[in-house]
């Protein structure tokens, strides 16, 4: 994470978002089970190197905004067998998120 000031951020705490349902050919770290799923932004956690381009020999610059997003387990898994209040947290780059109205 860099100490550099963040540019204009697309999302803020409490925003309802969904994860883009896409599978680009390049390396990416958005697991299949959250693609297309709805969650809530917990916080902006900082600017991070872009691992998607860095995996292809690039410097990974510029850094990108990353957010911690919370998902309800009952929304992710059909018939989730455990407690209905359980959550899943994952940190995602801004370009994977879309605002839910």
């Amino acid at each position: 994470m860099s100490a550099a000031a963040a540019p204009k951020l697309e999302f803020s705490q409490g925003d309802r978002v969904h994860v883009k349902d896409m599978t680009p050919a390049n390396h990416h770290r958005t697991p299949w089970y959250i693609k297309g799923r709805r969650g809530v932004v917990l916080e902006f956690i900082g600017m991070y190197v872009n691992s998607e381009t860095r995996a292809h020999g690039d410097s990974g610059m510029p850094e990108l905004p990353m957010y911690r997003v919370e998902f309800e387990q009952t929304h992710l898994w059909f018939d989730y067998p455990e407690s209905q209040s359980d959550k899943l947290w994952i940190d995602l780059y801004e370009h994977w998120l879309e605002r839910d109205e």
Binding site: H27, S51, R54, A55, H56, G57, G60
Partner: peptide
């Protein structure tokens, strides 16, 4: 090779 390339290679 950086660690992201390690992951791409594994994938």
């Amino acid at each position: 090779m950086n660690v992201d390339e390690l992951r791409r290679g594994i994938e």
